[in-house]
Nucleic acid binder design. Structure first.
Lengths: 244, 244
DNA sequence: CGGGCACTTGAATCATCTCAAGGTTTGTGG
DNA sequence: CCACAAACCTTGAGATGATTCAAGTGCCCG
């Protein structure tokens, strides 16, 4: 009887030790033995497809999730039914941090493309952190950096023009892609214009028009969701000074 | 020789144990013995006057600061010289959290009125937290709640009208005053119109006009920095649905 | 009492939004 | 492989809320 060779992803062991985003994730700064212990509590659920939810706003908080591949958006549903995108998340980033303080997830997280995560049951993670100072410190750093990141987003929405917001957004993405070993100058957006607009506090039409303008000025090429940045310096110079 | 009775504030022992904002601050959830140990590492610098800086953006991160009395604003200075207010902070809240991840304070904190703080040298605090799980957990909670709080601010700036933003801002302040045993319906703003405008991503004039309108509609009275809320329910109903 | 700062009010302008139509890509079923 | 529908995106013209610029008021502190 011939044995058919297939890969059963649910049994593939993708240890933290050999994970490509290890340096951006929880294990950063941990020694091999500590990573092994961290690995012991990680669950690796089957991949999510585009549009599927990792967790929903209001669900009981149990785990943090580390993104292994793919990307997510977090979004908040208002009492009046309005939806707001709070952020976009790439491999190595942790999701669910805001739920820790209140016992419930404060926003929903849904996959923007096929995505895989590591689930970190928080009670076990906390117990381990109490045993491993290096892990504990890494958790502090991650929480703190998330605060910094959210505050940068606040700056973005404050008083900047549509052009400044979009330029800042693209440069931020570009930098994060680069950290992950991808091209900083050419990439595909995994989110729709509507998502970008919502995140930046603008309308879909304004995003579209602004893309057109940036392209007309020769700063970048846009085709659908494919972006190629031609002039990073000039794009950067747009950010932060426009009211002149 | 007659002894003159004066209070030397620098020697007054204001232990965490007897601090009025204990329940909102780090000691929350700690038992008496743990609070005593926490108390052991707290420094209590002399009070700051209105306008004085607690720390400046870019300063080396050394301590977290717990507000004992008075209020602060945190603000970020852009490369182009523009200034943005990131938040307003009341007694019991911790300042400097975003600095922890990068080793430098990410924003400046300045006193809005006469204010006193507790300084918590972070290396010592971290060492103590590694010894006291309850303190460690409380730090997680505080960091996480700050993330939630910043995300709420993001929602505010997203797509809301001037009226919605100001109403949300006032209700948020009102609630925080109430938590501190003050009146939820009547209070003094410690920040200027300019600060509020900057925080809400609006102009000073728009804030002024919006106050006038809310007063005209009978929702509240404003006189200079004194606010009295007449109709909390109607104010609350303004929030979240305006585009109708 | 006077000077300065914080705040209010008004009128014109402008960036973005809204509404509406048209175009392009993607996936689906014949 | 083509026809079709559904998303998604682009573009245009007109409406609008907030900004800008400008003047005026009132409060606080020296």
């Amino acid at each position: 009887m011939p044995v058919k060779k297939v890969i059963d992803f649910s049994t593939v062991k993708v240890a933290c030790r050999q994970c490509s985003v290890q340096q951006l994730c929880l294990p950063q700064g941990l020694d091999a033995a500590d990573i092994e212990r961290l690995d012991g509590l990680v669950r690796r659920p089957s991949p999510l497809r585009r549009g599927e939810y990792l967790f929903r706003q209001g669900d009981r908080f149990r785990s943090l999730y580390a993104i292994r591949s793919g990307s997510f958006k977090t979004h908040h549903l208002g009492e009046d039914g309005s939806e707001r995108v709070l952020g976009f998340h790439l491999p190595g980033e942790l999701l669910g941090l805001a739920g820790l303080g209140s016992g419930r997830y404060r926003a929903s997280a849904s996959a923007l493309d096929t995505a895989a995560v590591c689930a970190l049951p928080f009670d076990r993670l906390q117990a381990l952190a109490e045993d491993l100072p290096s892990l504990n410190r890494q958790l502090y750093r991650i929480l703190s950096r998330r605060i910094s990141g959210d505050q940068e987003a606040l700056l973005l929405l404050g008083d900047k023009s549509a052009q400044e917001r979009l330029a800042t957004f693209l440069l931020n993405l570009s930098q994060r892609f680069e950290q992950r070993g991808l091209s900083a100058r050419e990439f595909n957006l995994s989110m729709s214009r509507q998502d970008i607009a919502n995140y930046l506090g603008l309308t879909l039409e304004t995003i579209s028009r602004t893309f057109t303008r940036l392209q007309g000025d020769g700063l970048l090429s846009v085709k659908r969701r494919h972006i190629r940045i031609h002039d990073t310096d000039r794009l950067r110079s747009l950010v932060g000074m426009c009211a002149s």
